[in-house]
Design a protein around this nucleic acid. Sequence first.
DNA 1: CTACAAAGTTAGATTACACTAATAAAATTT
DNA 2: AAATTTTATTAGTGTAATCTAACTTTGTAG
Lengths: 218, 218
Amino acid sequence: MNSLTEENYLKALFNLADDKGEVSVNDLSKSLEIKMPTVNSMMKKLAEKKLVYYESYKPLRLTEKGKREAGLIIRKHRLTEMFLVGKMNFGWEYVHDIAEQMEHIKSPEFFEKMDELLGYPKVDPHGSPIPDKNGKIALKEYNKLSECQVGETVIFAAVIHTSSEFLKFLSNRDMHLGIKIKIKSIESFDKSMTIIYGKARTEILSNIVSERLLVEKV
Amino acid sequence: MNSLTEENYLKALFNLADDKGEVSVNDLSKSLEIKMPTVNSMMKKLAEKKLVYYESYKPLRLTEKGKREAGLIIRKHRLTEMFLVGKMNFGWEYVHDIAEQMEHIKSPEFFEKMDELLGYPKVDPHGSPIPDKNGKIALKEYNKLSECQVGETVIFAAVIHTSSEFLKFLSNRDMHLGIKIKIKSIESFDKSMTIIYGKARTEILSNIVSERLLVEKV
DNA sequence: CTACAAAGTTAGATTACACTAATAAAATTT
DNA sequence: AAATTTTATTAGTGTAATCTAACTTTGTAG
């Protein structure tokens, strides 16, 4: 059994992994706000437990076992978020901090029940996929809204780097997952984007915003 | 803010307190399965934090502040148990272990929402009172079934020392909170009790069992 | 009322997880 | 290619929460 601390390292490793699955000690240190020497020794410990491949001065990688355990923690986090929004009427901007604590609860039955009551959802309230019972995560073929062209119509599918302020910003403009968005124009000097959605509603989004919105092409 | 460990000591102190509010180091040690010297030093720490009155070789007592904080943890525990039974369809024998973990979650909004969704319940699924938002617990005037007389009719109101095996034992016999129980006879040699309840159902309960059932006189 | 047992305390060791300071390796800039 | 910066590691320290062993105080049984 892994400690709460170990679980937090595993989750951060999973979330920071690039396409090769590699993470630097430095990035992990910054993400967890824990100094590098502490991270370094924890990596040796996780390597002992066969959760991480560790070699001096090389990037870190989760083992299959590590990926599985991280995936299961993320599964608990995202199921909880879904439950809080779907069954307890929380707004999507309030659920992260609670899920951050609930994800460490040891009780397969509890999360099984949540999953069942929710009807086995595939994504969480922010559009992120929920890993399956083996910790496997389906990777979605989404595009950033910022990379779409003028004239395209897309479906708003997920948000990345979901701070509660940003989520409130979206809610205030009635921008919910699933809505259709048409790109009316893009300013060349700052890449700000004018979009149309809902009942002929128009908004101008800065590039900072459009980079955080993931969409599906129709 | 108290650590998870400190919270567990506070809760145990609250639950073990006798009518004077006194707890011995020894009892606390046994209850937590933590050796006496460890308990001893933790008591000094909690005394520093004004949560416990501590004097060498004297029984322990929670301060008002300590009682409040313990009560609030128990509130979270019992609200969770109620939620698991009432909103997630768990049997009453399965909820203790999950609540034991959830009671440490820091999020007033989460428990507020639970309370609201449950319609502000006064007792948990085992009949134990739920402390209010100030950690104050209403004390109930229940009697042990074992102390009732032949011929009396009482209402089953709560269980004490609720192990999951014992709760299953009761469920298997359709003995749920709120049912009427009539005492038909008591054997003098072992105090075993023959009762009638439900649809003219008869059962014989050992004294061990009847001591754990709390009832209200009608 | 003394002796022994039970309960409580003190002292010192251990483990997990964090830190700072110093050092070493790798990457980048000039 | 050398110098500099960034990243990574090692060594040593601190705190929280646990333990065992040894000692002290309190309560009780003869």
